[in-house]
C-alpha cells in the first residue's frame, strides 16, 4: 500500500535491537497520520522468529529479509526488493548499519533521503522532516521535491520515539520475494575479534555519564561508573578518553562516535568541543561538571557545575543513593 510506513528492524544474537522497537512505534504513529500500516523489514539473527512480536510495539506486518548475522549491507538486495514501489516512507536507524542500508535504497531506487531527523510527520500526504544541520546551528524542514519517487528514506536518531509497551498484537510475517543479483551482497566477515569485556550499546541508554580527558585515566572512570549505576545509566566518553585507551571506542560520543539522545547526559572532565557536542546536544537534559568555569560545555549545558569531578561525582553518587534508599 502506498500509504504504508516501512522501517528497518535490526536483530542480532536472536533479539531485536532497541531501534527496532522504537521505529515500530514511530512507524505506527506516522502510519496513523498517513492512513497506512507500519511494516517491519526485519534482518539479522532472530528476525524470522522475532518479527511477529514487533506487533506489540505497533507493526502490522513484517517482511523478513534474512535471519543470519552478517554485514548489514548484504541485506540490501532483499531490502530493495521489499521497498520497490512500496509505501510513503522507510524509517532507518541513524546507526552505521542503518545508514548503509538506507544509502543502498536511495542509490538503487533513486529515493529522496532525509535526516537524521529530530522530528518527522506526515503533512499533505508526504513526509516532512526536521533536522539539525551545520553542527546544529540551523534547523531545516524538508519534504520530497514535487514528483520525487516514493518512499522517502528517513534516518532516525535513537530515542526519537519511545517504544509502546504492553501491546499484544502480532505482526503478520512474510518472507521477501526474489532479490536481484547485487554486488552489495558480496561483503563478508573475514575475521572477527571480540573484546574481553562486554560493551553496552550507548544508543539504548536513557541516562549517560560521560568522561573526558579530565578523568585522567582508566581508573578515573570508576567513580563515573558508580554514578551511572546509581542512576541506572551507562558510561560514555569523549574521543580524547577513547584515543587514550581508557575506554573502548564503542563508548565514544560525537561526530565520529555514537550520536545519543538520552533523557539525561552528565559530562565530566569534557570541554565540549563541537565534534563532541554534535553527538549529545539532542539529550533532553545536559549537566556538565568541569573545574574550568570557562569551559565551552558551560555555554550549552542546562546545569553547569564548576568543580573537581573527583569530589563532585562521588558526593553526587552518595546523595542519589541516599535519596533512593529513603
Amino acid at each position: 500500500m502506498s500509504n504504508d510506513i516501512l522501517f528497518l528492524a535490526e536483530f542480532s544474537g536472536g533479539a531485536p535491537a532497541r531501534s527496532a522497537l522504537e521505529l515500530a512505534t514511530g512507524a505506527a504513529e506516522l502510519a496513523s497520520q498517513s492512513g497506512g500500516s507500519a511494516v517491519a523489514l526485519a534482518y539479522g539473527s532472530g528476525a524470522a522468529s522475532g518479527a511477529g512480536a514487533l506487533g506489540a510495539h505497533g507493526a502490522a506486518r513484517a517482511i523478513v529479509l534474512g535471519d543470519e548475522d552478517r554485514p548489514a549491507i548484504t541485506f540490501a538486495p532483499a531490502a530493495i526488493a521489499a521497498v520497490r514501489d512500496a509505501g510513503l516512507a522507510v524509517l532507518a536507524p541513524a546507526t552505521p548499519n542503518g545508514r548503509d542500508l538506507a544509502a543502498a535504497l536511495v542509490g538503487s531506487l533513486d529515493l529522496p533521503a532525509f535526516g537524521p531527523v529530530r522530528a518527522v510527520r506526515v503533512v499533505d500526504g508526504a513526509v516532512e522532516s526536521e533536522q539539525a544541520t551545520l553542527q546544529g546551528s540551523v534547523i531545516t524542514t524538508a519534504r520530497p521535491a514535487d514528483g520525487a519517487p516514493s518512499p522517502s528514506v528517513v534516518l532516525v536518531l535513537a530515542n526519537t520515539f519511545t517504544p509502546a509497551e504492553g501491546g499484544s498484537g502480532t505482526a503478520e510475517v512474510t518472507q521477501t520475494g526474489d532479490a536481484a543479483e547485487s554486488a552489495l551482497a558480496k561483503a563478508t566477515v573475514a575475521e572477527s575479534h571480540e573484546a574481553e569485556a562486554k560493551v553496552v550499546n550507548l544508543e539504548e541508554a536513557t541516562v549517560i555519564v560521560a568522561g573526558g580527558r579530565g578523568v585522567g585515566g582508566e581508573e578515573g572512570f570508576g567513580p563515573l561508573r558508580d554514578l551511572a549505576e546509581a542512576l541506572g545509566g551507562a558510561v560514555g566518553a569523549s574521543r580524547a578518553a577513547a584515543d587514550a585507551g581508557w575506554i573502548p571506542y564503542q563508548l565514544q560520543i560525537g561526530q565520529t562516535g555514537k550520536v545519543v539522545k538520552p533523557s539525561l547526559y552528565i559530562g565530566a572532565g569534557i570541554s565540549g568541543a563541537i565534534q563532541h557536542r554534535v553527538g549529545m546536544q539532542t539529550a533532553e537534559h545536559v549537566v556538565a561538571i568541569n573545574r574550568d568555569p570557562d569551559a565551552p560545555i558551560g555555554e550549552f549545558a542546562d546545569l553547569f557545575v564548576v568543580g573537581d569531578l573527583f569530589e563532585i561525582i562521588p558526593a553526587l553518587t552518595d546523595e542519589i543513593r541516599r535519596r533512593k534508599g529513603a
Partner: peptide
C-alpha cells in the same frame, strides 16, 4: 561535516 547523512558512499556503491 555539513550534512552528516553518511549516505553518499552507499548510494554511489548501489
Amino acid at each position: 561535516d555539513d550534512a552528516r547523512g553518511s549516505l553518499v558512499p552507499g548510494a554511489v556503491a548501489a
